[in-house]
Amino acid sequence: MTHTEKRILTNKIVMTLSTLSAMVGMTFLFWILGILVINGIDALNWTIFSEAGAPPGYEESGLKHALIGQLMIVGVATFAGVPLGILAGTYLSEYVQQSKLAETIRDISDIMMSAPSIVIGAFVYAIVVAPMGHFSGWAGSVALTIIMLPIILRTTDDMLQLVPSTLREAAFALGAPKYKVIMQVVYRGAKVGILTGVLLGVARVAGETAPLLFTSFNDNFLNTDMNQPMASLTVTMFNYATSPYEDWQKLGWAAAFILSMFILGLNIIARVFLMKKKGK
């Protein structure tokens, strides 16, 4: 075999292997999506949105309680996590920059990003649930905020650092004070990137189950009091799917489908933003 033939053969082997690997990955992805869509759409109907949970066997049984609980818990977490994350990222990129303190915060934040979410749930259980004496929607939001925070912090930090320093200098050279340089020039230059980080952060926490088990727990009925245990799509899905009742299992599929579509939607929107930014 000549050198060239050998090279062509190696090329073919590697190409075949990588194509196969990609196909295995894609197969599972579409398998999951396919099963979700088939079972999910089958389980979808109007009562899912109009009715709250009910004991097994009831006709009028839906996911309204879980949808509202989910929106409230994730909404409060977003409301707290987004400004905190953006401000902390701004502090890193615009104020402490490359100092030791900044690098330490970046490292801690990277570690927090890979911390198992159930550990964060246990932590919030210890600092919020145990002193309060009961599970609550607030505790769930606290856990999700903690998970969301490092994601938004790091993307904000990265995106702000991508804004050329000459743009800041140009604003300073016109006599702008620092806070105006940041708010009027730097944020504008990084807004698409920051928004993408926010969307990815929200998408990440929207699918969390483990930290909620420890914090907001669950409620099979409609509850809008954040001081009380609260239903979420993820925990409800877990409970319904593992129950022996066929109608509950169906609701579990519906919950899985709605949740996946929500997260898929957020991810697609984030990617569209990113593509627009790159295309610019």
């Binding site: 050329p164 000459t166 743009l167 200098e169 140009a170 604003a171 050279a173 016109l174 009027q184 020039v185 504008r188 230059g189």
Partner: peptide
């Protein structure tokens, strides 16, 4: 005032 090497039009 100052003018820089590369144009520094603000994103507005």
């Amino acid at each position: 005032g100052m003018i820089f090497q590369k144009p520094t039009a603000f994103p507005m």
